[in-house]
Amino acid sequence: MKRVLVQTEDFDVAGELATLEALGGGGVASFTGVVRGGNGLAALELEQYPAMTRLQMERIVMDAGERWPLIGMTVIHRHGYLTPGARIVFVGTASRHRTAALESCAFLIDWLKVHAPFWKKEHFADGNTQWVASRSEDDARAHGWNG
């Protein structure tokens, strides 16, 4: 099962996990990314490249499917305005082997960070805004999977 969604709406983590569990592999791993609050952050705006986002996420999922014996993969990424505490991204993997589930889940979120065309802009309570800069350690982590 491959489930790739790009949406503005929230998603149901329990429901997504239940779907992966029902595949019967015996092992399910997941990662949920949530908007961090603090420093006066009022909202995080996620811009995307609509013509490319889904295509790129499907490429990443195919890549994971070639590297690990997976029976299910779910990747959901939200865009639009998200407030602190809101879920941004979900990655779930199901396999008969826990190592495959855990490693592919880490791979998918690392790759999403550097290969999915999204850009984050911080909106602060005082009216200031700032585009989030990319982090070299994210590049390094994603590059590590090439080895």
């Binding site: 013509a51 490319m52 941004i88 979120i109 999403l112 550097v114 290969h115 065309p117 999204f118 850009w119």
Partner: peptide, 12 residues
Amino acid sequence: QELALFPPVTGG
């Protein structure tokens, strides 16, 4: 047909 120009991505 299409060239996109942008900063390094920051999703996830």
